[in-house]
Design a protein around this nucleic acid. Sequence first.
DNA 1: CGTACTGGGTGTACGACGTACACCTAGGAG
DNA 2: CTCCTAGGTGTACGTCGTACACCCAGTACG
Lengths: 211, 211
Amino acid sequence: MVTRLNRDRVLRAAVALADRTGLEQLSMRRLAQELGVVPMALYKHVANKDELIDGMLDVVISEIEEAADSGDWKPAMRQQILAARQAMLLHPWASRAIEMRQTPTPAVLAYMNGVIKIFRAGGMSAGLTHHVMHALGSRVLGFTQELYSAAPGGEPPDMTAFPYVVEMAMTAAHENDTIVGGGCDDQFEFEFALDVLLDGFERLHANGWHP
Amino acid sequence: MVTRLNRDRVLRAAVALADRTGLEQLSMRRLAQELGVVPMALYKHVANKDELIDGMLDVVISEIEEAADSGDWKPAMRQQILAARQAMLLHPWASRAIEMRQTPTPAVLAYMNGVIKIFRAGGMSAGLTHHVMHALGSRVLGFTQELYSAAPGGEPPDMTAFPYVVEMAMTAAHENDTIVGGGCDDQFEFEFALDVLLDGFERLHANGWHP
DNA sequence: CGTACTGGGTGTACGACGTACACCTAGGAG
DNA sequence: CTCCTAGGTGTACGTCGTACACCCAGTACG
């Protein structure tokens, strides 16, 4: 081998492979092939597949731009979370991967720490900040699980029994007047929900909410 | 065999097995063993594993109690979503399973339809209802991905670098004054976030929000 | 200069997994 | 009595993660 492997090369190749083929297509064997190496070689740089995915997520999280802390927590938070969303949009597999893991890596903790800092620096109480972080949930990392956002692969079920669902879908198609209504404006929906939450937090904070 | 298999017996056994051992321990082979049958026998009642999981989810969703529609959408919605949460608490694997699937089953659509109906019957516009449903996201089904709610299995990383995270954890331990602070009050956190959202929706609705 | 150590790539193998395919068999319909 | 068929069986394939033994190019050191 002309160039040696190292952890960084492995992680970057894994991220690239997942970007290209999706997370469920990522296997140790495929990744090894991609790197021109035998599968077991990877284990010299990565403990196992879970740890590989942790590392991949750290790469993604390190790409999140840090929001300018202006002292005004609301716009700072908005900017921070939308920056996280940009990183997640670049790596569509990342949100699913985060859902699968059950222990935060230091990189995640560091990111979280920065987010909490924005609230606290803005004068929000520790107690309210706690609940607010829970309320944001995965949104703090820039994603929500869009329930069934993918196009239905097989034949769609009979929709006539679900008139309200149909109406809702129609509303989407109408608002952003695309021809087939290829779906909703995800960015708008994300910001809509984010603003509802941030406005709610602001109101609670202003009213001196306490546990 | 004294008792024949059928789709219902398969699904119920699968649900019970997942309840007992978790979703990742559920395999076609284990489920077959549980039923005293050879693995391939399952495929006479279920197309494949994905379809099995869809069926299991339908079982769970059918357990959600329907909220009494009082004409006042806010308490009705609150009740409906908390009922969904109860069903999800009974089957901790269900939320993860829902995240994995990418096409809604008729049972899910029927549930969604009922939820949307509550908003519409309460006088909310179709457009606002649409965004509101997106904002609820998976919460409408009674769960949010609690980011890393599980206890850290291995050795926890050095926390001194993340003072704000530590403070937040301390706050949790303090509020519900358990000894070790075994975690947060999930029910409270869920309702807190839900109420922030519902209050926000109510305000937008009252102000005649439109796209 | 020789030798011993070690970091990193290799080869083989195992035990899971989902499931395709051919088969068999009990029980009901004609 | 015969045939059909729903449903359970047996075998087999390809894929997966990864344990374990090996081997080899440097390099450190006597």
